[in-house]
Write a protein that binds this DNA or RNA. Structure first.
Lengths: 193, 193, 193, 193
DNA sequence: AATGAATGAGGCTTCATTCAT
DNA sequence: CATGAATGAAGCCTCATTCAT
């Protein structure tokens, strides 16, 4: 059996690279086609339009991203450790794939509201995962019982997102992974001395 | 009151509105000109190009935004109260100006990296302000002394940013201001029960 | 019954239908292939190109159309009756096959001059048949002897063509066949009271 | 006062020429622009899209065409003379403007049904004019009283249309105007000797 | 004979920017 | 200062046709 849908995968991989290097609006379809080694028209055998490429790239890549984190956090029992694992994996995965990080943190936002809504759909399982961890923590009394879960989730996700975006904007010049324990500590203990 | 450069201000105000309603890429220069009641060409007497409109809008509006927060936090002595005031003002100001919130949280991101760097320049004083509050807290021993300041700042800003973005994406359907105390509590105490 | 070249006939029949429903420019080769239940490439085993499908469809269908009329008029002796039969058959055949009527009256004209010349070739025997009827009428003194035959033929054909086109444009909303005697009368007697 | 809308008229004139030479589908917008001596984009300051050029050309030119005929037939009193004038003017005007004739008889038909409906709207006043002439003839008893007016109109228009189309297809190789009296005679007296 | 995935040329249209008035 | 008509580069997408299997 041949590797399934070879052109499809070629296009996906090329798109991540091209989007990362040029941004969404700077990534002409012809440029993606060239990078994928296919004809322009071939793109449209697999994707409805240019926007569809971006959203599909995101779905495929983000699906794996979330899957990995779900798997790893599932192995932990305590909410604190689950949270640590989530932070760790979130940062490690994006640290290891600069192109993907650029796409998720920068290029993906260069899109209209409609597209952003679709992106939010893809992110939903991830956000639900965070909610679940918080709830586990509350039930096990590791976390305060009066926590507003959506707010807390926004804090966790917003913090991770901002940290990775900063790192991408600084062109990956420093090491992110070593900051994981501190991020975890801040989220757990807060600022108060 | 400045009546100087009336057209300039007309354009700025029109641009905020048009960007908020149509997004950056949906805001043709001619649309902004029409909304401002000037000719297309007039725009170019005041702005270098379309990008320049966006960055200028952001500078003007964000300048005021930051100024207000600086003023208010300056009146507080304790770091905790300064932080509370910052959160409060950040959320209140964007709550009160939906158009501005849409521009800062959504449309501004629909831009290339170069533009985003300029935006970061504008944001810098704000981020420094947050850093200063954290440092005051550390010095006064209200905050833990082993805190990584940039990280903490990313957490605070990232949290606020995510919270406001969520609210904008949900089309301002719920009240943000009432959540200020909880946000403050989370940042101060963290998750730990 | 021919079972030879079954695919060929499938394609012809599918093409009439697809052309009638979508027009020439709205009938992609792939759409015809799908309607015919064959692969896109198969079309090119039987037809040189897309234009060739149209002209072939027309030749096949128009051939039958003309053949039927030739047969029926041949059975009549007097020029007037021949003419009546021709009008009758022309209108009846197109009345009975809406798809064909749409193709001949509308879609076929959506083509370039080269194609139209080929169409004229196919029509030639029909026009000659009209000429012959007129000549018979002149010789038998049923028709005026000073008639300009080509002109008269253009009048007869133009009248029929316009009548059918009008009926197609009105989406076949009224009955054509009942008008046959009046059309015949007009052509025979003219306007003069 | 400058000649009004000079570019608009340049485009209209260029379009007639280009359509006549290349057909609708062979007339790229860029080709029309070049022929008009304007930039491609300028076309879109005056026309919604390519189809709009065709329909506008037709409206402008056909409007004049009909106006001229209306004026001339209005000067005649008897129905027969009105009809003669209509035939005469119809054929003379198209005889004198080969490009226009090509556009009306050939290129205009290379369009979809929607467009053709618009064309019919433009033609409507002309068809009404023919109806009126027939009715005048019936009332004055010059024409038979049992005539089906729409049918007669289709005969008149269909005949003229076919005659002009044939002449265009034969590349204007013979003289049309001299046939006017014969056409008129045929329509008035019919075939019967 | 049949397939259908792949090709790639080609065209309509948009819109930021300019410049003569 | 202000205008707004004009520009023209640039890009997404379609679809007739091919060819390896």
């Amino acid at each position: 059996m041949k590797s399934t849908k070879p052109k499809y995968n070629q296009i996906i991989e090329a798109a991540v690279k091209v989007f990362a290097e040029n941004g969404y609006h700077g990534s002409q379809v012809s440029k993606i086609a060239k990078a994928a080694g296919v004809a322009d028209g071939t793109i449209y055998l697999y994707f409805k339009n240019k926007e569809d490429i971006l959203i599909t790239v995101f779905k495929e890549k983000m699906g794996q991203f979330i899957e990995e984190i779900a798997l790893a956090t599932g192995k932990q029992v305590s909410a604190e450790k689950k949270l640590f694992t989530l932070i760790d994996m979130h940062i490690k995965q994006l640290s290891n794939d600069h192109d993907l990080a650029i796409v998720t943190q920068l290029e993906l936002r260069q899109s209209n509201v409609t597209l952003r809504r679709q992106i939010n759909q893809v992110l939903k399982p991830y956000l639900t995962m965070i909610d679940n961890i918080i709830n586990v923590g509350i039930e096990s009394k590791q976390f305060r019982k009066d926590i507003n879960v959506p707010l807390m989730r926004q804090m966790i996700f917003g913090t991770l997102d901002e940290i990775v975006t900063n790192w991408v904007m600084k062109e990956h010049k420093y090491d992110l992974v070593s900051q994981v324990p501190q991020v975890h500590a801040l989220l757990i203990h807060g600022l108060r001395s």
